[in-house]
């Protein structure tokens, strides 16, 4: 597989991540925004795969797209009456928002330009682990040895969320089916 093909695929996923993000920004329909987010998250999953992070890429699809985005959609459909929620943004808000965006963009660009291996795309993506498929095993081992405490704490976080969901469910059970 040539460098050109690699670069082409990279730009495909980069476009898939960025273009829907812009559509969310300029669009006014919240539900459309949620659907556009599907493209952005899928593009990121593709980039993860190109880095050789297969487990991360697939869990990104499984959890973010298959789970959290569904929650987002249900939430939006639950709360809104009309498809258009956002009114026109006032100019007074647009100016500080624009300044913040440009500042963040400059900051990130500076970091990126200084990063090693930026001259060649495939070099910059050839990080440790990207040459060896099958990082899942190492990831699992680390999770169950070095990072066992955060791992178990995650279950407590999930427990808290579960209790919250049960509470919402009980309050909601009396409403329209």
């Amino acid at each position: 597989m040539s460098d050109t093909a690699f670069a082409a695929v990279f730009y495909l996923f980069a476009a898939l991540s960025v273009v829907p993000a812009i559509m969310i920004f300029v669009g006014r329909d919240v539900v459309h925004g949620a659907f556009w987010l599907l493209g952005t998250l899928a593009g990121f999953a593709g980039l993860y795969l190109m880095l050789g992070a297969d487990f991360l890429g697939f869990t990104q699809i499984l959890v973010y797209i298959g789970g959290i985005l569904v929650l987002l959609l249900f939430g939006v459909m639950l709360t809104q009456r009309t498809p258009v929620l956002l009114g026109r943004t006032r100019a007074a808000r647009a100016i500080p928002a624009g300044i913040a965006t440009v500042a963040l963009g400059l900051f990130l660009a500076k970091k990126l330009i200084g990063a090693p291996g930026m001259s060649r795309l495939s070099e910059s993506l050839k990080v440790k682990g990207a040459t060896e498929p099958g990082a899942t095993r190492e990831l699992g081992s680390l999770l169950l040895t070095d990072y066992i405490l955060p791992f178990e704490i995650a279950s407590v976080v999930l427990l808290a969320a579960l209790v919250g969901a049960a509470y919402v469910a009980r309050r909601g059970s009396g409403e329209n089916p």
Binding site: L78, A161, P177
Partner: peptide
């Protein structure tokens, strides 16, 4: 496009929690 029942939202929350567990 009427507002939908909160039950669907709760189902999605429950699903995410178990989905995360499954991911581990």
């Amino acid at each position: 496009r009427r507002r939908t029942s909160v039950r669907y939202y709760v189902t999605a929350v429950l699903f995410i929690l178990f989905d995360l567990e499954v991911a581990f």
